[in-house]
Design a protein around this nucleic acid. Structure first.
Lengths: 107, 107
DNA sequence: CGTGTAAGGAATTCTGACACG
DNA sequence: CGTGTAAGGAATTCTGACACG
């Protein structure tokens, strides 16, 4: 809990390197951003920077595209997964609060 | 044991980003390479690429430089540390071989 | 020794657009 | 829809060198 995001999440990789790592063209990578499938940060002067997690996400996207899945569908899956994740988070938070007030000694 | 070097060791970061991350100038970073304190890889077209481990190494170098330690001395420390590491490795390897031939059932 | 800087060139990245389908 | 490409400009990176000390 000290140094911020881990190596996997730090956004430090330029688009050219991401292209090498994923086999995708820069055009494709920028397009997937336009379709909200990937969210690079920007350097001070506006260059895109990606994390290893982004690279892995892009590889998954590439696989789905090869299977003929459209970017819109991939986007829907992502939104759905994200909502499920949030539900889980809220549930755990709630369980924690309940335990803090009533828990443990009760049973 | 599958996908090669981990996030920490993959050489994917360009010198400009390393400069931001470490606070060192590109000139300094290239000079420390000349003095064999750091070993970036090269992209197909010759651009330097660094790992997170390299970034951390550079931060340590920067700290030592601030204390007035010369690059030559830093280099010596690195060589020494590397040798100690190799000795440890050989020792473990040897122990493993001995165990494989004579170990365990003997006692 | 360690670092700054100006120099010139090559490679990178960016955006907006046209093309095909 | 998803991707290629040519266009023009701005920023990046590279090397070898001179400077100071």
């Amino acid at each position: 809990m000290t140094g911020g995001p881990s190596y996997k999440e730090r956004k430090v990789i330029t688009i050219g390197v991401v292209s090498e790592l994923t086999g995708l063209t820069e055009r494709q990578i920028r397009y997937y951003e336009e379709r909200k499938l990937i969210f690079p940060e920007r350097s001070p002067k506006g260059n895109r920077k990606y994390s290893f997690a982004d690279v892995e996400q892009l590889i998954e996207i590439a696989n789905k595209r090869e299977e003929g899945v459209q970017t819109y569908e991939i986007r829907q899956e992502m939104v759905k997964a994200k909502r499920a994740e949030e539900r889980k988070q809220r549930k755990e938070l709630l369980r924690g609060e309940i335990n803090a007030r009533f828990g443990i000694q009760k049973e």
